Each structure stands twice: as C-alpha cells, then as structure tokens.
Simulated assay, not measured.
Amino acid sequence: MNGKSAIKIQEGKVGMIGYGMLSSLESLEEILGRKYKDPIYWIHLRGMQRAWNFVAPNNDPNFPAEYIKYESFCLKNNSTTPYEKSIFLNIIENNDIRLNCILYFVTHEELALFDQFELGYTRIDVTDRVEEYYFESGKVYAYKALPAYEYDAINDKDKSIIEKGYLDLVLASYGNMGKEHKLEFEQSTLPHDPNLVAPVVHIKVRD
C-alpha cells in the first residue's frame, strides 16, 4: 500500500497515539501502572497538528473527586494568584501539516483507563492517517478535545494558564528524542502564548 510497511496489531490490543503528555514514556507508564514492553513507533499523522486549545475548569464536576480537592494558584510577578482553568494540548485538522507523534499499543482494558484519564477529550480513529504504516488488523486511536472543552480566547484568556510543569514535560520529551523530533514538534504545533505560562501550586482544601 503506497510503499507503507505493515503492522499487525496483536489480538486484544489497540494502537494509541501520544502527542502531548503521553509522548513521555514515564507518564504513560504511570497511568498504566506497569512497565511498557510493547513496541514504540515514531510516526506522523497526516492532516493534523497540535494546538494549545484544550481548556478545563479546575473544579470541573466531571473530574474524579481527588482532582478537585485542591485550590490552584499560579505564581506571577512574585505573587500568588488563583486561576480557574488549565490549558493543555489538543489536535486539530490542518491538511498542510503532518503531526509527529508516538504510537503505543495497549489492551482494551488499558484503553478504558486512558478514556477515563483523558476527561474532556473524545477518542477518535486515526488508523488511516498514519503515514508510515498500514494495519493488517486493529485500530489506532488519538484523543481530541470535545467542543465544550475548546479554548475560547474571549471567555478563557483572563482565567486560564498553561501549567509550566506540563509544558516543560512535553518539551523535554520531544527534546530527548533529538533535534529532528524537537524541530518537527515546533513545526507541527501552533505556538502557545508565553504570557499564559506560569508555575502552579495546588493546596488541598478538603478530604
């Protein structure tokens, strides 16, 4: 198929794309609760790019209780300020871009764990967007923001931040892959607003 190599996804498993926090193997393993032992592929998705346009309220009632036991503050101009929403990476359509990302393989049960973790995102089938491979069996999925969680510059800008720890984790992950991957990350990601980046402090308010 157009010079692509074939991958046969093992029975009982599915492909899953990491393009933000999940580009970090350590983050993936933390959610899995185990060491990851399956193959890892560096791939491209046709017609997609990263954007800093997923935003979620810190007290979102859809989040598990342990997520909303804290008040969140950001550190700006030597002062501590409460903020209401956090901005994370998302993927959007762009026919002129090829998104560099990572392909993992997990079980259906583990995929359900990521469905729970990726609150505010919906899982989409990107099997046919993978440039380098075709798949003899099984599907490949990625997580894309639900419309209700897409950033609105008018309503969200003064209430939202990009957590510096999250940004640093993603940049370090692609930086550790080498200069080429880091450059491709920059080319396939809409720039973030540096004024929105801040360190954060979470203070527990109830048990």
Rank of each mutant, 00 (worst) to 15 (best):
Y83R: 03
P61M: 06
W52C: 04
A142P: 02
A172V: 09
N62A: 11
D193V: 04
N78P: 08
F105N: 07
K182Y: 11
E118T: 03
V14P: 01
I124Q: 05
E84H: 09
T80C: 14
I97T: 12
R50H: 08
L171N: 03
E150H: 09
F73E: 05
V130T: 01
G20M: 03
I9S: 05
K69R: 15
L99Q: 04
P147W: 05
S79T: 13
G12Q: 02
T80Q: 13
Y121F: 08
D168G: 03
K182N: 09
Y41F: 10
G47I: 05
L22Q: 07
D38A: 08
D115G: 08
P39Q: 00
L146P: 06
E163A: 14
N90V: 03
D152P: 04
L75Y: 13
C74G: 09
L111F: 11
E131L: 15
L25I: 13
L171W: 02
F88V: 10
R98A: 10
L171A: 04
S188D: 09
N77Q: 15
E118Y: 00
V126E: 05
S160W: 01
D152F: 06
I161R: 11
F114L: 07
S79N: 15
T80L: 15
E110L: 02
E132V: 07
G175V: 04
G47W: 00
F88K: 14
L119Y: 11
N2K: 11
G175D: 03
N59Q: 15
K157D: 14
E109A: 12
K13L: 12
E11M: 10
H202A: 12
Y36P: 00
R123E: 07
Y70M: 04
A148Q: 10
W42I: 15
F88N: 13
F117G: 08
A51W: 02
F63A: 11
G47Y: 01
F105A: 06
E136Y: 04
T81E: 14
E132M: 06
E26C: 10
I7G: 01
P199C: 10
K179D: 15
K85S: 06
L167Q: 01
V197W: 09
I31G: 05
G33S: 02
Q49Y: 08
T127K: 07
K164F: 10
I40T: 11
M21K: 14
M1E: 11
L190V: 14
V130Y: 03
H108M: 09
I40C: 07
A6Q: 13
M21V: 15
R123L: 06
E109D: 08
Y143K: 04
E136D: 11
G47D: 04
M177W: 14
K35V: 13
Y67Q: 09
D193I: 02
D158N: 13
K4M: 12
